[in-house]
Design a protein around this nucleic acid. Sequence first.
DNA 1: CAGACTTCGATCAAGGTCGATCACGAACGA
DNA 2: TCGTTCGTGATCGACCTTGATCGAAGTCTG
Lengths: 369, 369
Amino acid sequence: MGERRLFRIQRQELLMDEVRQRGAVRVRDLAVRFAVSELTIRRDIAELAAKNLLTKVHGGATQPSDLARPAPVRSRRPASPRFTIGMVVPSLDYYWPTVVSAARMAAAALGVHLQLRGSSYDSGEDRRQITRLIEARQVQGLLLAPTLDGEDVEGMAAWVGSLPVPVVLVEREIPRWTSTSRQIEWVRSDHALGLEMAVRHLHQIGHRRIGLVLSKGSPTSAYLATGWARACADLGLPGDLVLRESVALDVPGHREIIAGLLARCRASGTTALVVHSDPDTMSIAQFCAEHGVRIPQDLALVAYDDEVANLAEPALTAVRPPKAQVGRAAVEMMVARLAGGGRRPSQRLLVLPELMIRNSSAPPARSSG
Amino acid sequence: MGERRLFRIQRQELLMDEVRQRGAVRVRDLAVRFAVSELTIRRDIAELAAKNLLTKVHGGATQPSDLARPAPVRSRRPASPRFTIGMVVPSLDYYWPTVVSAARMAAAALGVHLQLRGSSYDSGEDRRQITRLIEARQVQGLLLAPTLDGEDVEGMAAWVGSLPVPVVLVEREIPRWTSTSRQIEWVRSDHALGLEMAVRHLHQIGHRRIGLVLSKGSPTSAYLATGWARACADLGLPGDLVLRESVALDVPGHREIIAGLLARCRASGTTALVVHSDPDTMSIAQFCAEHGVRIPQDLALVAYDDEVANLAEPALTAVRPPKAQVGRAAVEMMVARLAGGGRRPSQRLLVLPELMIRNSSAPPARSSG
DNA sequence: CAGACTTCGATCAAGGTCGATCACGAACGA
DNA sequence: TCGTTCGTGATCGACCTTGATCGAAGTCTG
């Protein structure tokens, strides 16, 4: 058939074709097919293997494979997988202490070390802290809660995805797709469902006009708004009673804001409020007490974020995000990844909040009709 | 199947594949499958174990695991009270064997008993099997994969939610809200993301018109369609090239359907297809081979569901749902719930598929002018 | 806890494969 | 035309891979 002997390049082209088609080639077969000596084929294979286009094996060649690579230089401590995990959280005095302490306990239980860095709700500071941890070369993995609210969300996401160590996001989620090949893992509370639980609870005990008070600028606000919209749509409630203002005691002018809020409630017949974060809820409760609005008879309250809700008077019904479980699960996920040898599929864990029913929620004083 | 003797690397590649997919392999089985002596398989396993790619056990090998190595601090659970967990799956010959066998292994590792029931893709049969398990009063928890496609989705969901034992759904998700107070947990593959991975892969290597072939009536179809829509929207691809037909070899008239499909591809300039389930993909590949359509030069193929994709010729690029991980995680989640004393927040776990890039996907032969 | 059974791995042996070396011929440029 | 360079081929000892054997070690069952 082959009247003219093929050029080396042509032979190699056909050889690669065969490899791609069948997954492997045999020196013997190719020597016959191309009517050249086996030595020539071997030389072709060696050449292609040097370019990493295929893997040379005894007797032939196969597709590029990592298995052929010489055993990874694993002369390091063979036993005692005492990993060190870095953790960067945006705050050390709100929300995160519970998460961190659970992470600490889980790390201790698993025999790994946890290195904590506080950051702020600022991408630049996040990057700085993360870079410091990486450059110290002490951490094998990172638990991160970066701020993804800024303008450069995509850039930050891509940067996080390109870090040289495995990453598990905590209470955060990379939006849409990241260009990195390995999808980033995360663990977070299902805040949207938590808010739905609050609304459903109020709906179930008879409330038909429910309002929502969101803190400004909190990363969880978006989830809460989503849950709010979903719950209102499902239950056929008006979804427009939303206030996006912080009303905690340390906010200047909070009394005026609350007064306005209560006026709106009266005007619209709103009998219940879901309020983001305990201090804001307690601020409202206190204002109500001072102005003769009875909790829960005149206004039912559900706090989102059960830090101190049980200390209020009356004790506040509250949605409790599963902070401890999130912290623990994040550490466990990271340890599983580090111990899994890089071949474990990524996971994404949603942990559901709990609804703690206390005394600030009760059926509305007079049912309509 | 045993055509010609494989090279060592190919054997090891397939062995690792099996380990990752099923969680474990047996020396005996592999020796038969590869038509080599058991000693050879043992040597392969020893070699891979030396690279920490798997863990050698008596009789075979498993995924790298800390359980088998000298546990540093990890003292076994103090005599877990030997729970019995029931598991009801809709099929025992497709997709589910891998999930079940991983669940079995996890159960064994945790010292609990797993009671399996096969059902069919039918709500009535599901209820019958579940009822039987409950009435026997032998199970403390249930892993369920009920069919939620019928008309009475709400009713089935509510019924599952009202069962007297904890439930973890496997590869299923209760749509929207259930009236039961405790939210049902689930573990499932992120099939939508898996499909996105396939589309993004094809897009990245240069394909601009991509088609989708969905099996009819599969519960995962909905997820795949979602991922398809998302990927097409994100990438600005036409999302209309969808065929909802089974084209496996055992479907009467599959040749005509495939012929029509290829005609449509030619007419629309489609250069790549994502196909649900391996057999359908292989059917298409075979038809192409018979009709001179070259894979991957003329048509790139990506299979969804990596059961036998690596046995095709050329080996099929495929998305592999993390079946084993789903099965294992479901058992672990249930045991955590049973051991947690009812006070543990519910969790919902998404496990990400892997994209196994083989030879059926390559850049299109000539880019459009 | 012991006996039956299976699995493991060290050793030796056989056969195929590799590559260093030397040698040859064709293509190429001055 | 000649010399150089490149691609190729023959040879053979070393090397790689696999298999058979069998005592040792592990696992299961009663």
